[in-house]
């Protein structure tokens, strides 16, 4: 993993959502430029919703899981290329 690449990991076992609410559009798309602290996705675990925000500004290089997919704790969800 190079210095320029940052992997977004799930903090908890749960369900991956790309939007902050069911009827909203995805929070980010591949290729999108983001700022540090931008919301990237939401993980639902046991009815608790955790917003994941980017630690760095950069570009979304890849989204590794599909909306509503189950994810494990520490599973990589997105690849961000740091600015």
């Amino acid at each position: 993993m190079g210095d320029k690449i940052y992997e977004v990991l799930s903090p908890v076992m749960g369900t991956f959502y790309r939007a902050s609410a069911p009827d909203n559009p995805p929070l980010v798309e591949v290729g999108q430029k983001i700022k540090a602290s931008d919301m990237l996705c939401v993980i639902e675990s046991m009815k608790i919703f955790t917003e994941l925000r980017s630690e760095y500004g950069g570009v979304v290089k890849d989204i590794l899981v599909e909306n509503e997919d189950p994810v494990m704790k520490k599973q990589a969800l997105m690849i961000i290329e740091k600015e």
Binding site: S20, P22, D23, N24, K47, E51
Partner: peptide
């Protein structure tokens, strides 16, 4: 506002 509405929708099917 939007988080509360999202949680309500997910938990009760009503936002």
């Amino acid at each position: 506002f939007s988080m509360a509405s999202g949680e309500a929708k997910a938990a009760f099917g009503n936002p």
